[in-house]
Measured scan of single mutants.
Amino acid sequence: STVKVRLGHLEVTLHNVSEEDVRELRELWKNGADEEDLRRWLEEWKK
């Protein structure tokens, strides 16, 4: 499914993403990950 995730002022649209992935991303964000960390996660996730 396609999910729009809003993290601060960063809005990311993920395609074919699982609930688990979204949860993981939100956890990262809650734990103080900055945009760099999130971008890195997204790069990994896209592979």
Rank of each mutant, 00 (worst) to 15 (best):
L7Y: 06
S18R: 10
R39H: 06
E43R: 11
W41K: 02
W45I: 05
E44V: 07
R40I: 08
G8A: 05
L42A: 02
L25A: 01
D34R: 11
E36L: 11
V12I: 14
E11D: 08
R40Q: 11
D34V: 10
S1M: 15
D37R: 14
L42W: 12
L38R: 01
N16E: 04
E24A: 15
H9G: 13
D34N: 13
K46R: 14
L10Y: 13
H9M: 13
L42K: 01
L10K: 08
L25M: 04
L25R: 00
E36S: 12
L7Q: 02
L42P: 00
G8N: 05
N16R: 05
K4A: 06
T13V: 14
L25Q: 00
V17A: 08
R39I: 12
H9N: 15
K47E: 06
G32L: 06
E27S: 07
V17F: 05
T2S: 09
D37L: 14
G32F: 04
A33T: 04
S1H: 15
E43S: 09
D21H: 13
V5A: 01
K30A: 14
V3A: 02
D34G: 14
L28F: 05
K4Y: 04
R40V: 09
W29E: 07
S18N: 08
E11N: 11
V22E: 09
E19I: 09
L25S: 00
W29T: 07
R23Y: 13
L38W: 04
K4M: 07
R6V: 14
E27N: 10
V17E: 00
E19H: 08
D37W: 06
D21W: 15
E24K: 15
E43F: 11
E24W: 11
G8C: 03
L7E: 01
W45E: 01
E44D: 11
V12S: 01
E11R: 08
T2Q: 06
R39G: 04
R23I: 09
G32H: 06
W29F: 15
L42E: 01
G8K: 04
G32N: 09
H15W: 09
V5S: 00
G8Y: 03
V3F: 03
D34H: 11
E36V: 10
L10G: 05
V17C: 03
K30G: 06
V3R: 03
N31R: 11
D34C: 04
S18F: 04
R23P: 01
K4H: 11
E20Q: 13
E27Y: 07
K46F: 14
D37N: 08
V12W: 08
R26Y: 15
G32P: 02
L38V: 08
E11F: 09
E36F: 10
E43Y: 12
R39M: 13
R40W: 05
V3E: 02
T13R: 03
V5M: 13
L42H: 02
E27W: 09
H15G: 03
W41A: 02
E35Q: 09
W41C: 02
H15F: 14
L10D: 10
E27M: 10
V3G: 01
V12H: 05
E35V: 12
H9D: 14
K47N: 10
L14H: 00
E43V: 10
K46E: 09
E36N: 13
L10V: 13
T13M: 07
L42I: 15
V5C: 04
E43I: 11
